[in-house]
């Protein structure tokens, strides 16, 4: 699509208004709550988060997207540039303005930090994100963990690139002030629940449930490379590629997506049919923004979580909003690009 158009389609009819969050462990809650596994599923209690925008959209398209999100059933919104420091349609102050707007609309806004920190100027931005006290911070690199610790912040979110794979590491992050962790996308549901079962105190748990999978970061910009440009003089060619550029195998099979220095899956990680299982363990499901229909997707997840739409029907409806075929292999402990019907381990 043309990203200068409105990248969203507005809230779907019948979408519920934002609800009061129902948390298992609220920030600052006593850590002695023993919750080895989440109690019997009350689907309503699982909240929807919209992850940070991974693509580079024009300023107005980005602002419009978040303006629409203010009226959506998403309760948590992650903001900020996490992929490439050269992107500047919105500067940090602009992102903070968006955060304030969403907070006024009753959303919980979170500032996400850049995953790959290379330069002193990257660190400068990071320090500013940590220093602002209005919004919680998603730490996507250990540099952020250190700075948050130094600042005495006790309310941050351990992001999906921190490589938290075992109880000891998750415990360390909680000790350092994390109250929520976003599970690494490559981790299976089984491994995640085994980890949580060993935690003496459970942090809020967030699982990526929709979107192209962020698979890798590099110093190299693959979008610039595609146009025979260097990163330092990239001409911002990723601007306006609302869902990145698809990379196909030489047999024409869509395989990966080039998004600047980030490489994503071509297929769309879609756990909507797995929601019964996911919601059993996750307090929050994350929707990753895409060029179009993000709000439709958010509304559909809310319907499923509220028990208003069944998994099969929801999956069928979701297919028209996917930019590519579905995958969910990671959740099932399989190659990430596979799709497995729910219930098949």
């Amino acid at each position: 699509m043309n990203p200068t158009q409105n990248p969203t389609s507005g809230p779907a009819p019948g979408a519920t208004a934002a609800r009061t969050p129902n948390t298992l462990v609220t920030p600052g809650a006593s850590p002695d709550m023993t919750l080895a596994a989440k109690p019997t599923l009350d689907p309503i209690s699982t909240r929807i988060a919209v992850g940070p925008l991974l693509y580079y959209w024009p300023r107005q398209a980005t602002l419009d997207f978040y303006a629409h999100l203010a009226d959506s059933p998403a309760e948590i919104v992650y903001l900020g540039e996490t992929v490439c420091s050269r992107r500047h349609e919105l500067r940090l102050d602009d992102w903070l303005d968006v955060a304030a707007m969403l907070a006024d609309a009753g959303k919980t806004a979170v500032m996400s930090s850049q995953a790959l920190i290379e330069s002193e100027s990257d660190l400068k931005t990071l320090r500013r994100i940590v220093a602002q006290a209005d919004f919680r911070v998603e730490a996507n690199d250990m540099s952020a963990v250190r700075l948050l610790g130094e600042a005495g912040r006790k309310d941050w979110i351990a992001g999906p690139t921190l490589n938290i794979f075992n109880p000891a590491t998750l415990g360390l992050m909680m000790e350092a002030g994390a109250t929520r962790w976003v599970v690494a996308p490559e981790m299976s549901g089984g491994a995640m629940s085994a980890l949580l079962a060993e935690m003496p105190a459970r942090p809020e748990t967030e699982v990526l449930a929709w979107g192209r999978l962020p698979l890798a970061h590099s110093a190299r910009c693959f979008t610039a490379r595609h146009f025979n440009l260097q990163k330092d003089t990239c001409e911002f060619r990723c601007l306006g590629m609302s869902d990145g550029i698809v990379l196909h195998t030489r047999e024409g099979e869509p395989f990966l997506t080039l998004n600047g220095v980030q490489t994503q899956s071509a297929r769309v990680h879609n756990l909507i049919a797995d929601m019964a299982q996911v919601a059993h363990h996750a307090d929050i499901v994350r929707i990753s923004p895409q060029g179009a229909h993000t709000l439709d997707v958010v509304a559909l997840f809310r319907e499923v979580l509220d028990g208003r739409t069944g998994a099969d029907e929801a999956f069928q409806r979701s297919t028209e909003w996917m930019v590519e075929r579905a995958c969910n292999g990671f959740w099932h402990g399989k190659p990430g690009l596979e799709y497995h019907a729910p219930g098949c381990a």
Partner: peptide, 10 residues
Amino acid sequence: RCALSAYATG
């Protein structure tokens, strides 16, 4: 920070 192999092969 690379899950490309996991994505393709598990």
